[in-house]
Design a binder for these strands. Structure first.
Lengths: 194, 194
DNA sequence: ATTAATGGTTAAACTAGATTAACATTATTT
DNA sequence: AAATAATGTTAATCTAGTTTAACCATTAAT
């Protein structure tokens, strides 16, 4: 079970003793999914916070008209789950589907309190990463209000050039909140002005 | 210094002993602002997490064209700050201005670690409320993608009828991400169809 | 009482982005 | 190699929401 990426990631935020590492490892599980498989489906209760060891997922929401809205892409060294469903243990709003074969380490809701009791530092760790996620979410909200679709695309391309290469363009359009046709138009406009 | 609302609020999430309450009270400060005053200005470093005892604030962002985008309104029993600036102690993106005379209790960044050390439960408390804030932010992002302006307005009105009464309509328009003229149109449409 | 702010409405002209539909390209499967 | 499915492009038409600008109502200040 490949734990090193998770341990390295945690150590960026808090220090763990060898003993604490051992406890942590004993309380999490590893799981592999194939491209196309769902880590979480709308309506199910989200039982895990998933740390990605390898692969790529999309988190999306289906609206009343059946339209898919991609909320985020997640790759190596980041998290994926439906935080709302996880913290309240109520049915998920979102779906999480693998865009590539994906390996994750799972923190179960069941074990979470036990872990926090045995390793209080983890409470701090989760506070820190959720703070970051919250700030990122607010900044994205602002970008969606104050930037045009073209500027949002340019921003994404600048921030996540690696991700752009890994995903189909129509999914990026969904993430940006526009149609694939319009993203195609934006890209051809940008290509001309170079 | 009116502490009870804060203590009650905290007790909804974690239990505090009398001793812990006393420590907490000794480490926070109270402050009053007049209508129109700024609790935080863009470019300043956000030194406090502010819990609102009474009053109402708007948190907004000024874009490159000088357009104001309201991110949130905060009233009694809720928080206001620029979380991004607070956690990283870097210049704030946002402004927080009082729409009414407002009294807040301030948690200073300076004292935060001391408080967490003396009352480890507070680390848990902040994790829990930031989790909630993050989930709310994500849900709002989705609403902005998947709902029309009219539906977003109806949603706001249903969720926060008290707030709608306290704020000018043009600020609500800014919060909803539309112009005041268009909100006016939406309201007249809705008035007809009743 | 009058003036000046502040907040709200209406309507015409305009634009960013959606929709529809046809077609082109690239992978994947057989 | 051919067939099929998945992805991407282009262009015409349409619409939700913006812009501009004029006007009205209410409150606060002189």
């Amino acid at each position: 079970m490949e734990m090193q990426p998770l341990l390295n990631y945690i150590k960026k935020h808090v220090d763990l003793t060898n003993e604490e590492e051992a406890i942590l490892i004993s309380k999490v599980t590893s799981r592999k999914y194939l491209k196309g498989q769902y880590i979480l489906q709308h309506g199910d209760i989200c039982k895990f916070a998933n740390f990605i060891i390898s692969g790529c997922t999309k988190t999306f929401y289906l609206d009343d008209e059946g339209q898919e809205h991609i909320i985020m892409f997640s790759v190596e060294d980041w998290w994926t789950s439906d935080m709302g469903s996880y913290i309240t243990q109520t049915p998920a709003d979102y779906n999480v589907q693998c865009l590539e074969n994906t390996e994750v380490i799972q923190f179960s809701y069941e074990n979470q309190e036990i872990l926090f009791q045995k390793i209080p530092k983890l409470e701090r760790f989760f506070r820190l990463i959720i703070e970051k996620a919250f700030v990122a979410s607010q900044k994205r909200l602002i970008r969606n209000f104050s930037l045009s679709a073209k500027k949002r695309y340019i921003y994404f391309r600048g921030q996540y050039p690696q991700i752009e290469k890994r995903i189909p363009q129509y999914m990026l359009a969904s993430y940006l909140g526009i149609t694939k046709e319009f993203l195609s138009k934006i890209k051809s406009q940008l290509a001309l002005s170079d």
